[in-house]
Design a protein around this nucleic acid. Structure first.
Lengths: 143, 143
DNA sequence: GTCTCTGCAAAGGGTTTGCAACGCA
DNA sequence: TGCGTTGCAAACCCTTTGCAGAGAC
């Protein structure tokens, strides 16, 4: 079983636990979404599914991505021009390394950022509750 | 002269250098924007100016914030529901500590994040070009 | 005097919502 | 069978654009 398939199964379990139903449409959306490993807008995802003749409505894609985010299976990121982008990813705290060439997103465990947050708390007397760190650059495969 | 007033003057100079004209509307917008020290949407800024009977059109607020961003006097941040937020801030690389209670944003110099980026480059063989770090928490005044 | 800027209103585009039909559990 | 889900289309709302008049330099 691939890592992507395993991730899909845990999403199914999480959805079931939240009282959601696993419909044919949701399975198709999750499968495509998990396969992509990059930020996608609801519009893009809908277009891809349309190419596969999935016959899924745009509103359903929006609603499903919304559910996935609430369940912790997706990260939502507002983008330019009023578009939102979603990334299929684990709920555990981590950061992202976004390749600006191919768009692939790798997870990065949260290392030194924690200690930075601690020193910040002392210097500015700012109680850090959460933080967010993103890297943009060129990934191994593109360089 | 307050820090805010000094910042406004440097913005005026930067605008003049870019061939922009300093109109009464722009002065009002910059003054209000600089005073706020927090992320604001064009709509919010427009509403505030309307309360002061400034009589400035919404489109003008949008256009002015766009100019300020291009000049390096503002940071644009896409937010929820397709709204963009702007923060009046310096163009030099730094990070932000956003207070989740009062909304005030403090600048944080970029310290350990650089070394984190370097170690990331080696471990993942990912060439970091730029990064972005944000802290959310409770500021000195609110705690 | 020239050329940018402004205000207004309409257009544009992504997102959400209402509702009847559908189909998991 | 009950209730969550879907598809469609209309409604929403933020943002951009076109244009004629105003104003900075």
């Amino acid at each position: 079983m691939s890592a992507s398939a395993a991730a899909q199964d845990s999403v199914y379990a999480e959805l079931a636990r939240s009282g959601c139903r696993m419909t044919a449409q949701r399975k198709l959306i999750v499968a495509e979404f998990a396969r992509l490993r990059r930020y996608v807008t609801p519009q893009q995802l809908h277009r891809r599914l349309a190419q596969r003749r999935a016959g899924i409505g745009l509103a359903t894609v929006y609603r499903t991505l919304d559910v996935l985010e609430r369940v912790g299976a997706a990260t939502r990121e507002p983008r330019e021009h009023g578009e939102a982008s979603y990334l299929f990813c684990a709920p555990a705290h981590h950061h992202h390394a976004v390749c600006t060439r191919c768009g692939t997103v790798d997870d990065v465990p949260c290392g030194q950022a924690e200690s930075f947050a601690r020193s910040l708390s002392q210097r500015l007397r700012f109680q850090v509750r959460r933080h967010r760190l993103e890297f943009y650059g060129v990934c191994r495969r593109c360089s």
